[in-house]
């Protein structure tokens, strides 16, 4: 196993008095697809927000490419190659699809590669090329998710966090999007997938982390983990 590109050590995250992530520790090795599984309210999304700099941790450390990035704001992290596809896509709904994607190349580090990146995203999601001049607010849920993924890829990242991209989408669309994620990963990018569906997560990822009540309770490679173990960790039996 190679040196982890992303290391999370004992991170705690709160909303006011409410502790959403108690203490999370996990490694993400370079170039792999890693999934973070857990029931609703396990703290997965908060952990992703905290890693990506949207939310400030109240304790613990986050390392990216060996550097301490704890508490660094999102706008700085994205220039270092860490990108988040937030839950619910969060497209810029009053902007066109293409403007959304161009926003992805806003970091100075990504501007030079605008044309290539745009071509690559259109290749990955041809439907976006057709709808490039439509407002993203007029798209379907699946297409918005594609815009959000494309936008994240435009930032020219080394590691992308996908926060529950399958939420509320039809199975065929989910299948399509997951196939694209495998393609993205094959290009050398590190992928972190947050999922509620354990089966799909295990099928896609090489490494799994299972969260329960704000902690990472089980980690292991997808092949080694048994269904029984996962079920126990997922439900806290």
């Amino acid at each position: 196993m190679s040196e982890p590109i992303l290391k999370v050590e004992g991170v705690q995250a709160k909303y006011g008095d409410f502790i959403a992530v108690e203490s999370a520790t996990l490694d993400v090795p370079q170039g792999m697809i890693v999934s973070v599984i857990g029931a609703n309210g396990a703290g997965k999304s908060t952990l992703m927000d905290t890693i990506a700099g949207v939310h400030k941790p109240s304790a613990g450390k986050v390392y990216f490419k060996g550097e301490d990035i704890t508490g660094m704001p999102a706008e700085k992290l994205v220039t270092r190659g860490l990108s988040l596809v937030p839950q619910g896509s969060r497209c810029f709904i009053r902007m066109t699809v293409e403007d959304n994607l161009i926003m992805g190349s806003y970091p100075k580090s990504a501007r030079g590669k605008l044309k290539e990146s745009l071509e690559r995203v259109y290749e990955l999601f041809p439907v976006l090329k057709q709808k490039r001049n439509d407002l993203s607010g007029s798209l379907s849920g699946g297409q918005r998710q594609m815009v959000a993924i494309g936008r994240a890829l435009m930032t020219n990242p080394d590691c992308v966090l996908f926060d529950e991209i399958s939420l509320g989408l039809a199975p065929t669309i989910i299948k399509d999007i997951y196939a694209r994620i495998k393609e993205i990963s094959a290009g050398g990018m590190t992928v972190v997938l947050v999922e509620q569906d354990t089966q799909r997560a295990i099928r896609t990822a090489q490494l799994c982390h299972i969260m329960l009540k704000g902690r990472v309770v089980l980690s292991g490679s997808s092949k080694e983990l048994t269904d029984e173990e996962i079920k126990k960790a997922y439900f806290g039996l």
Partner: peptide, 24 residues
């Protein structure tokens, strides 16, 4: 312009804009 788009993006969604590297 990039700055113009960033300003429009900020008015749509602050969090998503900061994820694109925009300083709000």
């Amino acid at each position: 312009t990039y700055m113009g788009r960033a300003i429009r993006a900020t008015s749509d969604d602050i969090v998503a804009a900061s994820l694109m590297g925009v300083s709000i």
